[in-house]
């Protein structure tokens, strides 16, 4: 299945899910999540020249996003916010000017989007999983290992995952959580 087919399949799946739960609703919360991920992605474009998931400074914010969005246990809101944020992220990744030749490698971005939606949905819908709290950030290691098993020994990837756990924990502390969308 090509990346384009994958995006179409994902869009249909999200559309059917939204229809079953009363239609698509893009509220202020979703827009704020999207704006947040766009800001992070543009920061990456400015500093790295591209949107990357293995950058230890900005990527943990993106990886923590679906887990923080699932904190209320509302699967619909969590998936909506994650979808808005990650699709905005992919749009920035695809439209950012790049000095590298060739088009955006859509495969990894598609996989990461699907993984973040799954993470948000499962964390919001299953209380046992949600009870893991910030440690859910470690689940992103599954995504990286699915990309390449040898990343298990890559300290920079572990740094990204551990920092995402840190952001999740910070988002769980109440004063910070009140500022979140």
């Amino acid at each position: 299945m090509s990346a384009v087919q994958g995006w179409v399949f994902l869009a249909v799946l999200l559309g059917l899910g939204a229809r079953a739960h009363g239609g698509v609703r893009v509220g202020a919360s979703e827009l704020r999540w999207a704006a947040f991920s766009v800001a992070v992605a543009m920061l990456q474009v400015l500093t790295l020249g591209q949107v990357a998931l293995d950058d230890p400074w900005c990527s943990p914010l993106l990886l923590a996003l679906p887990i923080v969005a699932a904190r209320e246990g509302d699967a619909r809101r969590a998936i909506g916010a994650t979808a808005a944020a990650w699709i905005a992220l992919v749009v920035v990744a695809g439209s950012a000017p790049s000095d590298a030749a060739g088009e955006l490698a859509q495969g990894p971005y598609l996989t990461a989007t699907v993984f973040s939606l799954l993470l948000a949905g499962v964390a919001a819908a299953v209380p046992t999983v949600r009870a893991l709290g910030p440690l859910l950030g470690l689940a992103w290691m599954v995504f990286f290992l699915q990309r390449d098993a040898s990343l298990l020994l890559a300290p920079s990837v572990w740094a990204v995952v551990v920092l995402s756990v840190g952001w999740c924990a910070l988002a769980s502390a109440a004063p910070v959580a009140r500022w979140l969308p």
Binding site: P56, W57, P60, A154, P155, S156, V157, W158, A159, V160, V162, L163, V165, G166
Partner: peptide
Amino acid sequence: GVALAVYG
């Protein structure tokens, strides 16, 4: 995380 990043 920062230590790991610096190490990597």
